[in-house]
Design a protein around this nucleic acid. Structure first.
Lengths: 156, 156
DNA sequence: GGATATTCGGACTAGGTTGTGCTAAAATGA
DNA sequence: TCATTTTAGCACAACCTAGTCCGAATATCC
């Protein structure tokens, strides 16, 4: 209805990373398993987020992806602007290229206040809040239940 | 952000038809010109709407498409359910297949009230209202030819 | 009946998003 | 130095939506 799959995976992945101990890199492979998402595709998305400075990436044996220092402060709009592009908030319901208060489509003045609610939600929802919600155990991040928080430090 | 292009064209076309004298068929060709939209594609969309009983179609020399009798009462949700499918309102922001009050994603309880606002807007906005708005001359239904190349700079 | 205008319906093409595979580069440790 | 583990980057494949095309059906007018 709103977000592309790419954005959905990006948000899921960042929430998951926010639940992990900060400073230690998380493997793309592990995230993909936790979220039940194709790993190569997720890797591409994470690389894009790294370019957008939402997270750091480290190559090599002890590498992985790592939220930036103030990662908890990242909000959904930060992420979505990265994945959907900067024009995300400018959309007209009818798809008009130019639809502003001056040149409005017949839905403009009904749609704008509702759109603002969506935008506000995305702005005020931080990774921190979402990570806490997930850690509470009451919410799930991906469709597969159970393996989100094995709680048993899974050692291989 | 919300609607597919198919839905956008469908809504635009139906609003236009609602501004035309009822009972007389409107030509797909004419609608396409008014909306500046590819005619064969629009025809396919209108055929779908006819199958969904939102409008009638007549073949032959005096043919065309025609809003059903109570066409003004059609609301945006009627149209969009036809074009986007019946699951349109059930969407989870994160794309989870199962996301309800019982099995919720961490965004669920923040997203649902906002989603309700969107749904209410679509429900309460009828073709009648929109047609009147367009007829007032204050709103436009399609991009002017000059608007086809939008400026990327600051808007809004 | 024949010419014409229109929708109908299906097959086709184009482009973007989603997803895969492979090779190179970098970091580590022996 | 070499093997191993990981991301980086590119090309490719699969799929869906957007858009095109054409022949068939249907209705009207001459």
């Amino acid at each position: 209805m709103i977000l592309s799959r790419t954005s959905q995976y990006a948000v899921q992945a960042l929430i998951y990373m926010a639940t992990q101990p900060p400073g230690t890199p998380v493997l793309n492979k592990d995230i993909a398993v936790k979220l039940n998402v194709p790993a190569p595709y997720l890797a591409k998305i994470l690389q894009g987020l790294a370019k957008g400075n939402l997270l750091y990436s480290f190559r090599g044996r002890t590498g992985g992806f790592c939220l930036r220092e103030d990662g908890g402060k990242i909000n959904l709009m930060d992420i979505i602007q990265q994945t959907e592009g900067p024009n995300f908030t400018q959309s007209c319901l009818l798809g008009l290229k130019k639809c502003s208060n001056e040149t409005a489509c017949p839905l403009h003045f009904r749609w704008v206040p509702v759109k603002e609610k969506v935008i506000d939600l995305l702005h005020e929802t931080s990774l921190e809040k979402l990570a806490k919600a997930v850690e509470s155990g009451k919410y799930r991040l991906a469709d597969l239940p159970g393996d989100m928080f094995p709680r048993t430090a899974e050692q291989e």
